[in-house]
Simulated assay, not measured.
Amino acid sequence: MKNSPSYTVTSVDHALQLAVILQVEGPLRVSDAAERLGVARSTAHRLLSMLVYRDFAVQDENRWYAAGPVLSLATRSHSRVSLLRQVAMPFVESLATHLDESANLMVLFGDHMRFIGTVEGNRVLRVGSREGSVFPAHLVSGGKAILAELPPDELEAIYAPQAWAGREQDRPSLSALREELHGIPAAGFALNVEGTEAGVTAVGRVVRTGDEDLRAAVSVSLPSTRFSTDVLGSVVRGLIAATAGIERAFGRKIAAEAR
């Protein structure tokens, strides 16, 4: 379970968020960074300049910033994740608005889920943004939904003892995990009931991208005090509509790129 520190250093938090965006989604401009963080362009420029200085970012001749040597990932991963976020966020926003609860877009990286987009609900009591956060895949609803649909050999590889060297105490029992994941594909959703944060329940559903290297999910997070069977039905129906819309739109984008 992750707990927020008793105090936060805003500039550090912003720099770390930018580092994650560059690593997972790829290049961006100062204006993009300012919009994502909700800060002035001058502030975004100073943050990006410091990332460049420390080799977390590089700037090209067109003034775009990209992941530097410290953060470099495959270019294909960058472009597909960035494209997915571009396509998916309007549907995530619509889902959050319809339910008036926080909705999230996340992707699988190894044995963790990275939250690459959040739209918060408008209620006073709501779950805050998870954008930029990383959680163990087997604990979050979207991660469970994805893991439940993986081929058995791929699931075994992710949770093989050798893959968790140095952090064996955090590795879940594979047999217990399989038992927990059983039935999720048939249900079409997965639950996280206070598994990552006290007082928070989340419902997740897979986004089928058609790309085995890009496994994604959408989730809805809400205070556990508002969760009920009736609410679950509404959330699942919203997730079905949102993920179907994302899958169609993403498929059209990929097809257009291929032409």
Rank of each mutant, 00 (worst) to 15 (best):
K2L: 13
S6W: 09
S6Q: 13
T8D: 12
V12Y: 14
A15G: 11
Q17H: 15
L18W: 05
A19I: 08
I21Y: 15
Q23N: 13
L28H: 06
E35T: 15
V39I: 12
R41F: 07
R46F: 07
M50Y: 11
Y53I: 06
R63M: 08
A74N: 13
A74S: 15
S79H: 14
R80G: 02
L83P: 02
R85T: 09
Q86I: 08
M89I: 13
E93R: 15
L95M: 03
T97F: 12
L99A: 03
T118W: 10
E120L: 10
G121C: 10
V127N: 08
E131I: 14
G132D: 04
H138C: 09
S141H: 08
G143R: 05
E149K: 13
P152W: 05
Q162I: 10
G166M: 06
E168W: 02
E179H: 14
F189N: 07
E194P: 00
R205E: 00
G210T: 04
D213P: 00
S221V: 01
S228G: 04
D230Q: 15
V236D: 04
V236K: 08
A241I: 03
A242D: 02
I246G: 01
F250Q: 01
K253N: 06
I254M: 07
A256G: 00
A258P: 00
R259E: 07
